[in-house]
Simulated scan of single mutants.
Amino acid sequence: MLMSRRTFSAALLAGAAASLISTRGMAATTAAVKARNIVLVHGLFADGSCWSEVIARLQPQGFNVTAVQNPLTTLPDAVASAQRVLDRQDGPTVLVGHSFSGMIVTQAGVHPKVSSLVYVAARAPDAGEDYTALAKTYPTPPASAGIVFDGDEGRLTEAAFLRDFAGDIPEAKAKVLYAVQEPFHKELLAGRTTEAAWRTKPSWYAVSTEDRTINPDLERFMAKRMGATTIEVKSSHLSMISHPDEITRLILEAAGY
């Protein structure tokens, strides 16, 4: 049975970081539709297990949670994998994306079962926008220098993963995450969205203020542009692992609790 939002938030607030900042955008003026389904999508340098901490907090509250295994091949392939999961949901669904998968959320989020969108340190392009060109208008984040390719497959070096991707996670745990890193195909980065679901769906955004993978000011720009309800978390790029309580609270808000 779902716990009331007030009760659950109070339980999480007890251990929340004092650095959490919340601002309200246009999305806050639209009441979130009650949703019991949560679909989570991972980005580059990860797999679906990166959502484990958040899943463990949502499931006991009665939510139906699914982590999509993003193929990281092409954008159409990745969007199709999310759409298949969305097709299986039995009602309103919160679609959540981290990092690169913000591209997927932005495209697949027009699905009729998606009631709201949550971006976690994620890309949020407009329809047809060249995200790479947008990102170049901000200082290049350090993690970019750590990407290496084996043919058409890219990945982060261990040093860059530990320092620039998972910098606030204990080293032993970060090394486990590094071990399950899924390589991405070069073609994936060439994809552009043809839809911008955030223009029609209520949206929430978690900015990682210590992010070394996506520039935090770029995250702020995208969140403001979409009119998202926005929080700032003093976190590395992997806020859903290092600050799962804050990210869970944001998802609960997007789900109407």
Rank of each mutant, 00 (worst) to 15 (best):
P60W: 10
W51H: 10
R57F: 01
D150S: 15
S52T: 13
S81H: 10
L250Q: 01
Q61I: 00
P76T: 05
S9V: 12
K224R: 15
A28F: 07
A143R: 07
I147S: 03
Y257Q: 00
G48W: 10
I247Y: 03
Y178L: 12
Q61Y: 01
P216T: 09
T140A: 13
T200H: 09
I55R: 15
I251G: 07
E219C: 01
F100A: 05
L177S: 08
G128T: 06
V207C: 01
P125W: 11
V68A: 04
V233M: 11
F161M: 05
A196Y: 04
T157N: 02
N215R: 07
H98R: 00
H42V: 02
R5Q: 15
Q69R: 02
V39C: 13
R225N: 01
L177M: 14
T7L: 12
E153T: 12
F100H: 08
G25W: 08
I231W: 13
G48Q: 15
G146P: 10
E246R: 04
L12G: 10
P60L: 06
A206R: 03
E53S: 09
A133N: 04
D245F: 10
D77T: 02
A145W: 08
A17N: 14
I147Q: 03
H185D: 15
V65Q: 12
S101N: 02
Q61V: 01
A197V: 12
F45D: 04
T74K: 05
E171N: 04
A122C: 08
S144R: 14
G48F: 12
M222F: 13
D47A: 05
N37L: 00
P170W: 05
I147N: 03
G191S: 00
S4Q: 06
A166V: 00
P92F: 03
A10H: 03
V105C: 06
G109S: 13
D211L: 00
F45W: 14
Q69W: 01
S49V: 14
E171K: 11
E232S: 10
Y138T: 01
S236A: 10
R192V: 06
G146H: 07
G151F: 09
R36Q: 14
V233L: 14
Y138G: 00
L238K: 04
R249M: 13
A160R: 09
L13R: 15
V41K: 05
V65R: 11
H237Q: 11
A46C: 08
Y205E: 10
G191A: 01
H42I: 03
W198Y: 14
L238T: 13
P183M: 13
D152V: 08
R123Y: 09
P76F: 06
I21F: 07
A14N: 02
V68Q: 02
R24P: 02
R88F: 02
L58K: 13
E246T: 13
I241R: 03
H42P: 02
G97E: 07
T209G: 05
I251V: 15
A10S: 07
F8C: 12
T30C: 00
